[in-house]
């Protein structure tokens, strides 16, 4: 990458007064989008509460089936990727283009790592027949164990889709950074994707103990 090449000057959209106005508006919009995401995932946690209260025994049984080691590894991976994400933004604020790219690539590798671990977990569950309710074929001790796996696959699956979308966004950021779009006075897309990525981390911070640890 030719990091000596000057960055591309950002042109503020015609309906904004200046770049601060533009940045503040974008960030407010992103926070409001995250509000919708909170309610999107939050509703699933309400379903979780309902199941847990109705059939506490399936959570006890299931947390022995899920591997807390895999879950903990994925937690560490996502937390670390959140850290590299903020460092990528910080590098852009300091006009360090190469560092921005390196941090973004690290974040992306973490995201792929997360999905690889998830893949191994999923295939083990599927192999043993721990599938969502209709296709559930395993023999559990509790009568309603299929409900746990219905919810488990829905919640972690939806989270996984968010990780995939995040990977796509990070690739887009990398391409734009290569063209020199981001510098100290313009890094709005970086900041917005960053917020999104931290939110994905946030959801996992709750999913991990609720599914893997608490029985």
């Amino acid at each position: 990458m030719k990091i000596t090449e000057p960055h591309k000057e950002h042109i503020v959209a015609h309906h904004f007064a200046n770049s601060k106005h533009e940045f503040d508006s974008a960030r407010l919009g992103m926070w409001i989008f995250l509000v919708t995401e909170v309610l999107f995932f939050g509703a699933l946690f309400v379903a979780y509460a309902f199941l847990r209260w109705s059939y506490p025994e399936i959570f006890v049984e299931a947390h022995h089936i899920l591997s807390w080691k895999m879950g903990a590894l994925n937690t560490a991976i996502l937390i670390f990727s959140s850290f590299t994400m903020v460092m990528a933004i910080r590098s852009a604020q300091l006009n360090q283009r190469l560092k921005t790219s390196l941090y973004l690539i690290t974040t992306m590798i973490c995201a792929f790592g997360f999905l690889v671990v998830k893949f191994f977990e999923y295939s083990a569950k599927i192999h043993h027949g721990y599938l969502p309710a209709k296709y559930f074929v395993a023999h559990g001790a509790s009568e309603y164990l299929h409900l746990f796996f219905g919810l488990y696959f829905t919640m972690t699956g939806l989270h996984g889709i968010h990780v995939l979308v995040g990977i796509g966004l990070i690739i887009w950021l990398l391409l734009r950074n290569r063209k020199g779009h981001f510098y100290s006075n313009y890094y709005t897309p970086l900041e917005m994707v960053g917020l999104y990525w931290h939110f994905v981390d946030l959801v996992w911070i709750f999913l991990f103990p609720l599914f893997y640890l608490v029985g």
């Binding site: 509703a43 969502p132 309710a133 209709k134 409900l147 829905t154």
Partner: peptide, 20 residues
Amino acid sequence: PVLGITLLLLIVERLVGIGI
């Protein structure tokens, strides 16, 4: 968003039967 997740759950319910 709560409508979104409700309809999504219904779709998943029809496809794989999550059961809740």
